[in-house]
């Protein structure tokens, strides 16, 4: 198992390096000119040229790449062109919101998706039809549109929850829950539907296995047969879907942060791309790559735990 984890870890480090390299050169190809954002619309061409030279933007891309990688290896992602503050600090300031959305969303997705999927598979009949039908409808709704609907219903019309803003959990846990409820629902419901469908199919498949009959014959309570033994065997395909949904949730977070005005990494990267703040864009790419690849690593490790055969692959 240790060798398996080390091998996965090595692959993760390599992937981070590849992603960062690709991101650097893609961003370097972007035509955005940050000097417009810094100097404003009244700046003369001479002033913009001088600033570009001063900021080293005229240096060859390879030179800038090695400089960036050297900094990265020392934990330094550079300084934002616009705010002139360290990128690491700004990304770390924003990451809790995005992580809360993504991890909270994936927890919501996992719990709701697995429970509803297993209930649909084991109950059958109208319960199964209702859950499947609802999942189909929710999955068909884009999450940003769902977000707008939730805002209109629960914030604008019913005035039950805020339409925008974010309260950190450490500041006020109840206000945190109020500010996080709608974004989490918006980001998590569509992913939940996907997990429901996968969990239902996997559980139905497992239920048909002989060992489930054997377990029942030993006199185990039905809930143990289903929720402990059945679910463990059904969990591998479900885990795959959850891993994919986590990556999708990160992408969805960018839109959801816009709709709910949340100060996360998504809105930071949108603002940075708009003005061509290269160090900030790369900082966000590095941070998101690390988080996503670590999540993939975790999923891989869970595969190994749940399925010993995966360790040999």
């Amino acid at each position: 198992m240790t060798l398996y984890i080390l091998r996965r870890l090595g692959i993760t480090v390599l992937m981070v390096f590849i992603v960062v390299t690709l991101a650097f050169f893609l961003v370097a190809l972007m035509p955005n000119d940050v000097t417009s954002a810094i100097l404003g619309p009244d700046a003369t061409r001479e002033a913009r040229d001088a600033l570009r030279e001063e900021m080293g933007l005229n240096d060859p891309a390879l030179f800038r790449y090695f400089s960036f990688i050297t900094g990265l290896l020392q934990g330094d992602l550079g300084t934002s062109y616009v705010s002139r503050q360290p990128v690491v600090t700004q990304v770390l300031d924003r990451m809790p919101v995005t992580l809360t959305l993504s991890i909270g969303g994936i927890i919501l997705t996992t719990v709701l998706g697995v429970v509803l999927g297993v209930v649909a598979a084991t109950r059958g009949g109208w319960v199964d039809s209702a859950i499947r039908g609802s999942a189909g409808v929710v999955q068909a709704i884009p999450n940003f549109w769902l977000a707008v609907l939730l805002v209109l219903v629960f914030a604008v019309n019913l005035k039950l929850l805020p339409a925008s803003g974010w309260t950190p959990i450490a500041e006020n846990p109840l206000d945190f829950l109020r500010s996080a409820t709608l974004p989490l629902l918006a980001i998590g419901l569509a992913a939940t539907a996907a997990v429901v469908r996968q969990a239902r199919v996997a559980m139905m498949d497992v239920q048909a296995k002989d060992y489930m009959q054997t377990l029942r014959a030993t006199g185990l309570p039905e809930w143990r047969v289903i929720w402990i033994h059945g679910l463990r065997n059904a969990s591998i395909p479900v885990l795959t879907v959850i891993g994919l949904q986590f990556v999708a949730l990160f992408g969805g977070a960018v839109l959801i942060e816009q709709v709910f005005a949340l100060p996360g990494v998504g809105s930071l990267v949108v603002a940075s791309v708009n003005v061509g703040d290269m160090p900030m864009i790369l900082g966000v790419v590095v941070a998101l790559s690390v988080v996503i690849l670590l999540m993939n690593l975790l999923i891989d490790i869970l595969y190994g735990v749940l399925n010993p055969k995966a360790r040999l692959a």
């Binding site: 707008v148 805002v151 914030a155 005035k159 805020p162 339409a163 925008s164 709910f260 005005a261």
Partner: peptide, 8 residues
Amino acid sequence: AQLNALLA
């Protein structure tokens, strides 16, 4: 989102 925040 600003409009929604005002209305809410």
